[in-house]
């Protein structure tokens, strides 16, 4: 029944700028019949490497926002005293909701004795479906500063999953967000495997350890890929040790290469820009290694 239960492989890193998106785009060449998703919804870049066409775009309403009707408000101040998010502004005795701070908890709406607070769905951004030469891509754009980034991540994952089931695609390859907070938690919970892209630097290692702890917390097994492996031998060894300590499988390393930036400037993946390069061969070996691991694992 494997084809009915697509496996989500989520690429994360902890630290930003380690090469998640460039590597996701490159790996896309090697996975047969898969769906792509970009869950870095507040700084989504994967589409910049995939030459997208035929984009469908839909508004995304993730939560709600409160609005005070000044004609009904008697300035009692109860909403302000109950709001835990400093989202009620008071100017010259007039009360108003500061939209960017409102988390949509509804506490003020229910508490207002004058029923002066309305409750609107909040437009948080948009989600898109695009065609690429590597298959369908689901992506999104959070309105900068908007709430509900985690909900939008979950939404994009669900859309990709529906399509994977429809296409009988065995894999969903997901570009994840940096960090370990709300959007990352939304991207990794319930995923099949994580692919952590890291670099041999003090920050890369520190942040890798935090995502490995997060993966352990949510019980998702991980693979590790070391990018820019040749810039520091000492930290390369430390990274390998760290991977072993957390039981994460080390699936390969790549050298520092300016070809990634050159491919970015051409708007395609490194595989499409430089198919005969040394690094393309190394990526192929890593992808084959990854796919072999995924296929060998027993279904539970």
């Amino acid at each position: 029944m494997a084809h009915n239960d697509p496996k989500e492989i989520v690429v994360i890193s902890g630290k930003g700028g380690t090469g998640k998106t460039s590597i996701t785009a490159a790996l896309a060449s090697f996975f047969p019949n898969k769906i792509l998703a970009d869950c870095d919804v507040d700084a989504a870049d994967l589409h910049l490497l995939l030459n997208i066409s035929a984009t469908e775009k839909h508004d995304y309403y993730g939560g709600h926002v409160a609005e005070i009707d000044p004609d009904k408000c008697n300035s009692c101040g109860l909403c302000e005293s109950l709001c835990r998010f400093d989202a009620i502004d008071v100017k010259e005795g007039k009360y108003a909701v500061q939209e960017m701070s409102c988390e949509g908890c509804k506490v003020c709406v229910d508490a207002c004795p004058e029923k002066a607070i309305a409750w609107h769905p909040a437009l948080n951004g948009a989600w898109m479906k695009s065609e690429t030469k590597h298959g369908p891509l689901f992506h999104a754009r959070l309105i900068p500063g908007s709430e509900n980034s985690g909900k939008l991540v979950t939404f994009v994952r669900e859309k990709a999953r529906e399509k994977a089931i429809e296409n009988k695609a065995p894999y969903i390859l997901i570009d994840g967000p940096p960090g370990i907070g709300c959007p990352v938690i939304a991207a990794v919970t319930g995923a099949h495997r994580l692919l952590m892209v890291t670099e041999p630097t003090p920050s890369g290692l520190h942040d890798l350890e935090r995502v490995l702890q997060l993966a352990a917390y949510f019980k998702v097994p991980s693979y590790i890929l070391l990018n820019k492996a040749d810039i520091n031998k000492d930290y390369k060894e430390k990274t390998e040790k760290c991977a072993a300590q957390y039981g994460a499988k080390f699936i390969g390393s790549l050298p520092y290469s300016t070809l990634f930036t050159e491919a970015q400037l051409k708007g395609v993946s490194i595989l499409d820009a430089f198919p005969d390069s040394e690094i393309a061969k190394e990526l192929k070996a890593i992808a084959e290694n990854l796919i072999t691991h995924l296929q060998e694992e027993k279904q539970c």
Partner: peptide
Amino acid sequence: SPAGTSCSFVASVS
């Protein structure tokens, strides 16, 4: 500040 443009970014720069 953190990367991205979500609520953490707003909390940090506001």
